[in-house]
Design a protein around this nucleic acid. Structure first.
Lengths: 212, 212
DNA sequence: AAGTGGTCTAGACCACGGC
DNA sequence: CCGTGGTCTAGACCACTTG
């Protein structure tokens, strides 16, 4: 790529401005910077599906694999929080959670079964209004009036159960990926916990890391 | 945290300098920045094991789980590259690769079985000299005179084979994580492909993503 | 309204890599 | 040696959040 000074001349901005822009690209692994040498575009990025560590953004994950993503709501309900959920979501025992079960498709093929539990106390709109086909980001914005600011994803290997197997159209008993996600809001409080059963026979889960 | 202006005053540096420092922390999810509000330390980071997307750095991964890491060389040899390796490493058919098989321990418990294949043509020192207990970064620096600049890791779920099961002290047939890593050098050419069998019953593989 | 982080300028010097 | 990116300064204004 052109050097920083060339870019700042051509674009009519200061070098500092060019640098902050390039820094963002570099942070996502899109370009590689080498002191004393130059800046290069990262030709290997296309090989990865989750460029920016967006493990929790299932829509992007499917797109990154070159498929057209779509979401289908399986069920929405409310129930008492389990002990695990009480712990993870910082609830009082006996509090209720909203349960979203959704199925993600890649080109009309089911690939991810996503279960989410969200504290009922955060819900700002009627439960029945929830449009389960939306992006999780928009669901939180619209019905919970919350913004997601942090996600922690734990990746596990597990054996596919009968129920999930049927939903995904895969014989149960197979080895499959499980992404356990905890989402946090702007106030640093937990918004949701989720379990995503991920058919890694169809979708690749690959990450880039650019070295300093 | 103190505001940028406070920090720049206290530390006697310009605000721009403070900003670049904070930007690095934010990129790794260690702090959260909110325009119009302030900068906050991310208390949830400690829940993650691989903060910086370092999926290929197994030593850091083990440390992140709170264990003391150690490496034991199982075998080092050379052989013809497989077809897959020819493709992934951009070799000619029939070229040879150096094969490193290593076992990673967490507090003296085997947790990761790592197989690496590196083009023999890159080797700059005698094969026998290789110290398999070193960090992969140092192995490349010392014996191949190469620096790792990019890594792409693909995460899969698989069934544990008999051989790997024995090495890891786990009964074979279990569901387990497989990390397939491709390392690239400064010149953007592939340095190595690796398959890491990862016992996720002991080690957690968790990642943070800070939202913008 | 006051304070925060986000963006930007126009300079300067340093550390590194390739030739 | 020269050009590259890395670091740094001392200002300025804007966008946003909170009280």
């Amino acid at each position: 790529m052109p050097s920083e000074s060339e870019l700042s001349d051509e674009l009519g901005v200061s070098r500092a401005t060019v640098r902050t822009a390039l820094a963002k690209l570099a942070a996502n692994g899109l370009i590689l910077r080498k002191q004393g040498d130059g800046t290069y575009v990262n030709a290997h990025v296309r090989e990865a599906s989750a460029h920016f560590g967006n493990l929790w953004d299932l829509v992007q994950l499917i797109e990154g694999n070159g498929y057209k993503p779509s979401i289908k709501l399986v069920s929405v309900s409310k129930r008492r929080a389990t002990e695990k959920e009480v712990l993870a979501l910082a609830l009082e025992t006996g509090e209720e959670v909203v349960c979203l079960r959704r199925l993600f498709y890649a080109d009309d093929q089911p690939v991810i079964l996503a279960d989410n539990a969200i504290p009922l106390s955060l819900l700002k709109e009627p439960l029945e209004d929830i449009d389960g086909n939306l992006h999780i980001r928009d669901i939180f914005q619209r019905y919970f009036h919350q913004k997601i600011s942090l996600a922690i994803t734990e990746i596990r290997s597990t054996v596919l159960g009968a129920d999930a197997g049927q939903r995904l159209g895969v014989e149960s008993g197979k080895s499959i990926l499980q992404l356990q996600v905890t989402l946090y809001g702007r106030n640093n409080l937990p918004l949701a916990v989720g379990t995503n059963i991920f058919n890694d026979a169809i979708l690749r889960l690959s990450l880039v890391q650019a070295w300093v």
